[in-house]
């Protein structure tokens, strides 16, 4: 499903080059639930951005569904991204639109007809437990609720992969656990879920595969485990 083959990424800065990822090789199967953990500067976010094809690796290849994403043409990138649901720490909701419109927006971008949008949006809102709040604006929701809307938006187009970057970073422990339960629920429907986080508590609770990055290198890859402290 997702394969990183000897991937390195070096940033060129004013004060020399910084190697964010060093020869990283990783394979994630279809339907897996994986945590990518590590301290700040360990390369988690670089990995996340590479998987979204926001930037290119300095060396190595990344495959998704057996396709080398490095070989995608610029005009093929939007279609590639439609196969990935994304969730961010800061939710990234459109503040001036309702919950319904925020989720419908994802469907409109890919050209889903209006009559189907209503049903699809209400279905995912039901899944995240916010069907009664479809008219609310993001500012009227709690942090946990906003993240649930973001999750609903990420899965409304049924992507085979869901990437979450610090999805619990702005949430209290109760809401964090709820979001994790939702991610697990989504994973059980067959979606491959990759969560980048440094939240030790939820990683320990979930007992899923944990890939630990340190200074751009994979230092451990536990099939079923907790947060590894380096």
């Amino acid at each position: 499903m997702i394969v990183l083959d000897h991937v390195s990424k070096t940033y060129q800065g004013n004060q020399g080059s910084i190697q964010a990822l060093k020869d990283v090789s990783l394979s994630i199967d279809k339907g897996e639930f994986v945590f990518v953990v590590g301290l700040s500067g360990s390369g988690k976010t670089t990995l996340f951005r590479l998987l979204l094809k926001e930037m290119e690796p300095t060396s190595g290849n990344i495959f998704m569904n057996n396709k080398n994403i490095g070989k995608l043409r610029r005009d093929q990138i939007p279609k590639f991204r439609r196969g990935i649901g994304v969730v961010f720490q800061d939710f990234k909701l459109l503040k001036n639109r309702t919950v319904f419109e925020n989720i419908a927006f994802a469907q409109r971008i890919i050209g889903v007809p209006n009559r189907r949008i209503k049903k699809n949006v209400m279905d995912v809102l039901k899944l995240v437990g916010l069907q009664d709040k479809y008219r609310a604006k993001p500012s009227e929701l709690s942090g946990g609720e906003q993240q649930r809307v973001a999750l609903a938006r990420a899965i409304v187009n049924n992507p085979p992969v869901l990437l979450a970057d610090e999805p619990t970073g702005n949430l209290d422990p109760t809401n964090s656990t709820e979001i994790m339960k939702l991610l697990e629920k989504i994973n059980k429907r067959g979606t491959t879920v990759v969560v980048v986080t440094h939240n030790t508590k939820i990683v320990d609770e979930m007992q899923k595969r944990v890939v630990n990055l340190n200074q751009g290198e994979i230092v451990s890859d536990e099939k079923k485990g907790g947060y590894v402290y380096v």
């Binding site: 979204l52 005009d75 939007p78 279609k79 590639f80 991204r81 439609r82 994304v86 990234k92 909701l93 459109l94 927006f105 994802a106 971008i109 890919i110 938006r153 187009n157």
Partner: peptide
């Protein structure tokens, strides 16, 4: 800027 970033992540084309 934020809206454009969201659109890009959701798979919007350049034209959109």
């Amino acid at each position: 800027r934020d809206e454009i970033t969201i659109m890009k992540y959701l798979g919007a084309t350049d034209f959109f």
